[in-house]
Every structure is written in structure tokens, then in C-alpha cells.
Nucleic acid binder design. Sequence first.
DNA 1: GGTAAAATCGATCAAATCGTTCAATTCCTG
DNA 2: CAGGAATTGAACGATTTGATCGATTTTACC
Lengths: 297, 297
Amino acid sequence: MNRTALSPKEMAEAIGVSESSLKRWADGGLIRVARTAGGHRRISLPEAVRFVREQGIPIVRPELLGLPEVSSLQLELQRAGSETDRLYDFLTTGRSKEARGVVTSAYLRGTSAAQLADDIIAPAMARVGDLWRHDPAGIFVEHRATDIMIQAVNQLRLLIEPPANAPEAVGGAPAGDPYVLPSLLVATVLTAEGYHAVNLGANCPTDSLLQAAQQHKARLAWISISGVTLEPFLARDMVDFSGKLAAMGTRLIIGGRTRPVLPAGSDRHIQTGVTMAELAAFARGLLAADDARQQAS
Amino acid sequence: MNRTALSPKEMAEAIGVSESSLKRWADGGLIRVARTAGGHRRISLPEAVRFVREQGIPIVRPELLGLPEVSSLQLELQRAGSETDRLYDFLTTGRSKEARGVVTSAYLRGTSAAQLADDIIAPAMARVGDLWRHDPAGIFVEHRATDIMIQAVNQLRLLIEPPANAPEAVGGAPAGDPYVLPSLLVATVLTAEGYHAVNLGANCPTDSLLQAAQQHKARLAWISISGVTLEPFLARDMVDFSGKLAAMGTRLIIGGRTRPVLPAGSDRHIQTGVTMAELAAFARGLLAADDARQQAS
DNA sequence: GGTAAAATCGATCAAATCGTTCAATTCCTG
DNA sequence: CAGGAATTGAACGATTTGATCGATTTTACC
């Protein structure tokens, strides 16, 4: 079941080390622990996840971390094929638990959220999307797979905790674009990069996005384009839009399957990308620049 | 429910410790408690806040402490509506963590998934949906709220596990209907009722639904209508559709904001409902009938 | 006002965790 | 390979925690 906090013993058993070592690591500051009034250590799940990822520690008993789907996945003895193949297999056969396991365990093993999206999830979903061309049952399988994927990414999102003073990021899919998953992935990637991501989801007018950015004093805004093409007139809208955002200190990044073509010379305040890795890199760069500026002052 | 005073049980749940520990801390002077005439402990909200701050104890379920900025010293004890009010507040102000807390804690306290949907989530989302009429920022708030709600329901869904041999249920929103949340709620309610629910999400053609029902040998199929109205010709489609489903042992239930009007005399294999409670009742009835038949044989 | 259900009381007890010490193991370096 | 440093895991008594109990108080409802 879903734990809110772990005791040293639980986490020690989960990763297969002694309780003593875990306590020593906690006392040495390697693991951030809260304390009960009586002095007992309590470890939050996102903190445990952060630690095992950074240290590259294999998880022996995932169910102790509240992640039973990871353990059930281990029962599927190393099947042949890449992670994408396995994910595709689980998605098309409706095995949601195993699909969640693929995503979660890949992240726990150290795969970055962006890599996960680019190299595992996107290819699998692309293959799922091709199904309906050949298979009459493709549409239902695609719908089911999408739902499963949304579940999996939402679960992943809960395992990541941005720092307390994280800058805000706001975004969504443009008006007329009904796809939920891509924007959800962006929100997850940005959370992993240390932002507090506010996802406005599918079909979100730019006006609404602008207001959200204002209210949240967002450092970064994203638009995730999947279901519509960025028409030239829309591209001009975007340039105008990004100008308004820039005026209040918010940088805009636009992404999608294909790199949007913007009017020449308009790439001053507007960034485009087709992969989550690009998005993550840009977001990281923005943070680094802000940090440098703060240190200088 | 903004309480002026907390019971030991409430505060214990809020910070994720046992009631015993809290009472011991109170008796040891760590927490200043008032006593009722009968000797029960009462902890003031400021005292609770002071304690968790001093001890650095993470607050697991902040909604139980009532939020300071809600400020209004409403003495009203927990009514059915108060939870909706809090949820609405969290949804409109973008506090996703707290919103998830309302949903999860309500479920953990014993509220059924159907009740949660009908009495807490639906009213809150309806109020959110009214926002755009009066507030220019309404659209963005609505999008943000929807995303938060989807997260919360997905999290709830992960907390519920159907029995191993659960019958399958398949459904989604009809073609042209872009709303994700209602069908997700149906899937969650059915999971809580003991079904293995396969959600095909928004904008799902009936053909795909039929194929999914076939492949899964579904006992139950649902169509959740939100964004489109059930036109008469579509209604006739539905009767035809439900006939095909019935032929393979799948019962159909159609739901939405308004009760769909079906051609007279067609209600043999088709069920309609406007509340999740109706849906849950029908699903339960189906299960009970099956069980009785199995026992008889 | 009266009654039944729910919550809380105070107390007890087993299990978990505390901080510390120490021996065994691993790692590093000359 | 020898030997010192660092890491690990086990053990210890003292303390903390969480579950449980029958008795009492509070709350909800009529």
C-alpha cells in the first residue's frame, strides 16, 4: 500500500542493507530524515527515491516502498527485448500494473524523467498510435494504452518532490489540441528538474496560459503541441504571446512532434524543442543562470 | 470544517502518528492541551501549528488542520458540503497536494468512491466550471483544477485493488466528447465495486468500445456523456449498440449530467443513470445476480 | 429530554527504534 | 602482501511507538 513515511528499518530492508548503515547515512546527511517528537527517524518516499537513484542502489523489495508494481514486474523474468518493447507489450495487452512497473523501475534505476519520456514512453506510444492503421481493434487499444500511460506518469509524478523554493512553471496543450499525455510528461520532467510545475492540461487557450503564468509568477511556460499543427498565423501569435510573457520574466518553450517553424529572427524569447531532453536542458539552463545571477549579487 | 480545536485523533492523523503517541506527548507537556469538563483533550489550532513547527514534523494531511488562510472562523462542524468547499478552495487556488488530501482522506475515512464523486468532487468541479462566466481568469483556473482533479482521482484509483477474479468492465466517453475526468471517475467507482475497469478515456468511438468489450469479455460497459448531447439518432445507435453487447453478455450503462432519453421500451438491456451512486448500485446488482447464479449451479 | 453510536479516556504491553559500542569486512596504499 | 583507514552489520539496554482493553464522555438524532 501507499506509505507516506518510512522507518529506517523499512527502507533498509527495501534496499537490502542493514538498519545500522541506514541510520549512519541519515546521521551523515546523505538521507534527509524528519524526526518524531520522540526522536525516531522518518523518511519520506520522494526522499527515499532520490537517494536510491543518486546512489544507484538496487531495490530488493519494492513493495516496502509502496511500489508493488515494481516487484510484480521482477517476476516477469528478464524477457527479451528493450524496455520500450516490454512497455509496448504491456500497454497493448492492457496490463496496467506491469506498465507502471516499467516506468517506475526505470526511474528508480536512474533513468532521468526526460530519457524515460524520449526513449521509452514516446516510442512505445508511437507504436501504439500506429496500430489502428493495421488492426481494427487499434482504436480501443490506443485509448486503453493512453489511460494506462497517464496513470503511470501520474504515479511517477508523486515520487518526485521539487525543492521548497522551486520556481514555478506553467503550461499545457494549445486550444484545439485534445492530448493530455504530452503536457503531463512535460510537467513531470520539469518537476524532476526542480520546478514546481502547474499543468493546465489539454485544449488550453493561450489567454488562460498567460493568466496562469501571471498568477503563479512563472519563470517558465510551456506549450505542448500534439494534435494540431502550428500554422504560420498561429506561429505569429506565439511570438506575440512570448513577448507578453517575457515582459513579466517568463520564458516560453514550445515543443511537439515536429519542431515548430517560427518567423525568422523571432527566437529571442522563444525556445523550441522536439525532445524532452531539450526541454530539460533548457529548464536546467534557466535555473543555472538564475543561480549565477543570485550569487553575483 | 475549520475547527477551533482538534481532538488527539485528528491531530494524530494530520501528522501521521498514532493517537497513543499524541496523547503521551500531551501528557508529557510537549503539547499544551485543554480539557473538556469530562476530561477529553482539546488542542487549539495555534498550539498544533506551534508544535509541528518546533518539532519539524512533516504534516501528512494538512486539510485536517484546517488552513489558516481559510481564516473564516466557521464554527460549522463537518457537514457534507464543507468538504466540497475545501476541495473547491484547493482546486481554484492550485493547491494540488491539499486537494489530493481531501479526496484520499475522505476515501480512507470510509466515504465510498461513488459518494466521493457525487457529493464532493462533482459539486466542486461544477462550481469550478461556473467560474469562467464571471471571472476572466476562469478558464485557466478550470484547466488547472481539472488537472489536479485527474491527479487526485488517479491516485485514489491506485489505492483500490479489485479482487483477482474480478469481472471486467469497459467504457469511456463517446466520440466527440473530450472530457477525461467523468470516465475516469466511472472507472474508479467500478474498481471500488469489485470490477477490473478498463478506461478507454475521452472521444472513444462505439466501435472501439465494442471491440474492447469483446476482447475483455466485459460483464459491463459504460458510456460517460459530458460534452455532447445524446441526439435521438445517437440514442437509436445506442439501443443497437447495447443489443450487440447484450448478445455477448455485456450489459451497458449510460450516464451523464442529464439522463439520456431513449426510445420507449428499449430499456431492457440498457441502463441509464445520472449519479455514480446509481452506477455503483447497478454494478453491485449485476455482481450479486452473478454470484447467486453461480451458487445455484 | 432521552437514547444509541461514536469518540476518548487512562492504562498496559509487545514491538520498534534510539544511540552507542565493537568486531568483521572491505578498501586503499605503500 | 602488510597494515591502516573506512565501511558495514550485529548487539546492547534504554526509550519510544502503536495497538488494545473496558470504562467514560461526547455527539448525533429523534
